[in-house]
C-alpha cells in the first residue's frame, strides 16, 4: 500500500521538486527552469514554475526565502526554494508508485 488518495504528486509538481533537489542551494526560478529544459527538453514558462512552487509551498512540501536584489536582475531579488522533509517523502512515494506500476510493462508490450 503506497498511501492515501491525494498524496501522490502531479507530473509537473514531481518534475519541479526533483529539479529543486538537484540544484540544492542554488534553486531559484531560472536554474529550475533551465534544469527542466536540460533534462527533459520541456521549455516551461516561469509562470508555470512559480505557480507549481507556490502550490508545493502551500502543501508544506517546499519552502522559500528571498535573496538580495542584484543589478543584473533590474534590482529584483531571487526567491530561493528548498524541499522540506515532507517534500522528500512525497517524492519518494511518487517514485515508488511509478516503479510499482511500471513492473511488467516490458512483457505487456508497453516498452518501446
Amino acid at each position: 500500500m503506497i498511501g492515501g488518495d491525494d498524496d501522490l504528486l502531479g507530473t509537473l509538481e514531481l518534475i519541479v521538486l526533483l529539479s529543486v533537489i538537484c540544484l540544492g542551494t542554488d534553486a531559484y526560478g531560472m536554474p529550475i527552469r533551465d534544469e527542466i529544459h536540460r533534462r527533459i527538453g520541456r521549455n516551461i514558462s516561469f509562470g508555470a514554475v512559480y505557480v507549481t512552487l507556490q502550490r508545493l509551498e502551500s502543501k508544506g512540501l517546499a519552502e522559500s526565502r528571498m535573496g538580495e536584489p542584484t543589478a543584473e536582475r533590474g534590482g529584483r531579488a531571487k526567491k530561493f526554494f528548498r524541499v522540506t522533509k515532507a517534500g522528500l517523502q512525497a517524492v519518494r512515494r511518487s517514485q515508488d508508485a511509478i516503479e510499482a506500476m511500471s513492473i511488467g510493462l516490458g512483457e505487456a508490450g508497453g516498452a518501446t
Binding site: 509562470g47 512559480y50 507556490q54 536584489p69 536582475r73 529584483r76
Partner: peptide, 23 residues
C-alpha cells in the same frame, strides 16, 4: 496580474528571472 496570481514576492522574483535570462 502576476502579483495577484503568484504573490508580490513571486512576481518580483519572476520578473528578475526573466530579466536575468534576457541579459
Amino acid at each position: 496580474l502576476l502579483s495577484w496570481l503568484i504573490g508580490e514576492d513571486g512576481a518580483t522574483a519572476l520578473l528578475g528571472d526573466v530579466r536575468e535570462e534576457s541579459m
